[in-house]
């Protein structure tokens, strides 16, 4: 409780988050889909998939070219609200390895402005295994800060030491709840208290249901919780309340 009050005093101006503990660290989950680590003034965001539209356009599928803009605007809003000292992008920040090179000039400028005055860490992902070009920030395969480990893909071993304090993305978790014969599917945070999978932040990123067997490799069956993204708040559910697609 004292940790919470001191946190409230210290970050009184920060947006309302759902506070939980991961591997003993107090972190806040925000309904935009970002994770806020107040202790380190660090903002974590996963799977931006910038330039996904143009990645498809190259192959003749002309998706709207507005995804990068929409994602960056949303990110800018979050940065305004939290004003973090450090930002960690958890991989798949660009939809393909050439994405950062294709980034239109005004979006590059916008991103660079967001990076001003803070530490920026690009974690590599399977979509963007290389460092982005002509952009600031440090590129790493993974990074460990205190008790938390930041990487793109989760370690596929439940209860292993490597998984303790792991914050990752990659899976684009989404959950489905059924009620009165209708069902609702939303992106969500997924955690068992020792590790956490963030929802995908990018505008054109779909989701994978957390009941999929891919999640069975990282959480014990039904022994995890999700926080579904709503408008201005999160909706927590235990895994047993969720349904498959």
């Amino acid at each position: 409780m004292s940790a919470l009050t001191s946190h409230l005093r210290k970050y009184a101006s920060a947006p309302v988050c759902h506070d939980i503990q991961i591997n003993g660290q107090l972190v806040g989950l925000h309904d935009s889909g970002v994770l806020w680590w107040p202790e380190e003034s660090t903002l974590v965001v996963a799977d931006l998939h910038l330039e996904k539209g143009s990645s498809y356009a190259r192959r003749g599928v002309m998706l709207p070219p507005y995804d990068t803009g929409a994602t960056l605007e949303k990110l800018a809003g979050v940065m305004d609200a939290f004003d973090p000292a450090r930002v960690i992008c958890l991989g798949d920040s660009f939809h393909d390895a050439g994405g950062s090179d294709r980034l239109p000039a005004h979006y590059r400028a916008m991103l660079t402005t967001l990076q001003l005055g803070r530490e920026w860490i690009w974690v590599t992902g399977n979509h963007d295994p290389v460092a982005p070009v002509r952009l600031c920030g440090e590129t790493v395969d993974q990074v460990e800060l205190g008790p938390l480990k930041f990487r793109h893909e989760p370690v596929e071993k439940i209860g292993s030491e490597a998984a303790e304090g792991e914050i990752c993305g990659h899976l684009h978790p989404a959950a489905r709840v059924r009620r009165f014969g209708r069902s609702i599917r939303r992106p969500c945070f997924t955690t068992d208290g020792t590790r956490m999978v963030l929802p995908a932040f990018g505008a054109l990123t779909g989701g994978l249901n957390v009941t999929d067997e891919a999640f069975g490799m990282i959480f014990r069956r039904r022994q995890f919780s999700v926080f579904m993204l709503g408008n201005d708040r999160l909706f927590p559910f235990t895994a047993s309340r969720l349904v498959a697609d």
Binding site: Y56, P64, D67, H172, A203, L204, T205
Partner: peptide, 12 residues
């Protein structure tokens, strides 16, 4: 599973 969701394209 994942493909491009037309719902998201619609929103954007």
């Amino acid at each position: 599973q994942v493909t491009v969701s037309t719902d998201l394209i619609y929103d954007v």
